[in-house]
């Protein structure tokens, strides 16, 4: 089994979707414990991809195909997870780009990486009104709202999401992370966000670290 887990990890690092799906199916056929296959195999792979990306070893296309391979493996494993063992619930995230801003790709990457790492993600797309973030977070029981803003002119919308949470007395319950080119740790602190993530890998680390 150890060798199998290594292969699972490698399939993600290699961004090999067919291989990842094939290994996931083989895991089920052989009756390996699904959680262990995910945690010690595939998830280890996506964390390795994240580490290499952070170190500048990998570029965006490699990060993306790693996440795509992870998604394929999870599609195969998910029914078994839901049927049997309790999946590790990392948390739920509602994500979107703030109203007035139609930049989409960076946010979609964050959503993909969060999902590949085991978070349940609701992606609201771009140009999302403040109220919609909070409505969806309430509806889905989200732990996090992730708000992207790519322009200095749309950044104030991130603060309005936090204000909206406060007005509904949800501030302590639902955390907010902000990201996007003009944002920074300082900006996150200034508006009272729970964290700043500069890229998709940082977003995963932040969500993991702070979701209890």
């Amino acid at each position: 089994m150890k060798e199998h887990l290594e292969q699972c990890m490698q399939a993600i690092v290699d961004g090999d979707s067919p291989k990842a799906a094939e290994l996931a199916k083989a895991s089920l056929d052989k009756g390996y414990p699904v959680l262990e296959v995910i945690e010690k195999g595939f998830a280890r792979g996506i964390r390795e991809v994240g580490r290499l990306w952070e170190e500048g070893e990998l570029f965006l296309p490699e990060l993306v195909i790693g996440a795509e391979a992870m998604k394929k493996a999870m599609e195969v494993l998910r029914p078994a997870l839901e049927a049997g063992e309790a999946a590790e619930k990392l948390g739920r995230v509602v994500i979107g780009t703030i109203e007035g801003d139609i930049h989409d790709i960076g946010k979609t990457l964050v959503a993909t990486m969060l999902s590949a790492n085991g978070f349940e993600v609701t992606d609201l797309g771009a140009d999302v009104p403040v109220k919609r973030f909070v409505d969806e977070a309430e509806k889905t029981g989200a732990d996090w709202i992730a708000v992207s803003a790519l322009l200095t002119t749309t950044m104030p919308g991130q603060k309005r999401v936090i204000d909206e949470l406060a007005s509904r007395s949800l501030r302590g319950k639902i955390r907010v992370m902000v990201g996007g080119a003009p944002c920074s740790k300082e900006w996150a602190a200034e508006i009272g966000a729970d964290g700043y993530a500069g890229d998709a890998v940082a977003a995963v680390a932040l969500a993991r670290q702070k979701t209890a």
């Binding site: 296309p61 993306v64 795509e68």
Partner: peptide, 16 residues
């Protein structure tokens, strides 16, 4: 075209 590719989950095609 990028939007359609990413919307359909074809991320690599979309970002390229």
């Amino acid at each position: 075209t990028v939007k359609a590719a990413i919307g359909a989950g074809r991320m690599l095609e979309g970002i390229a």
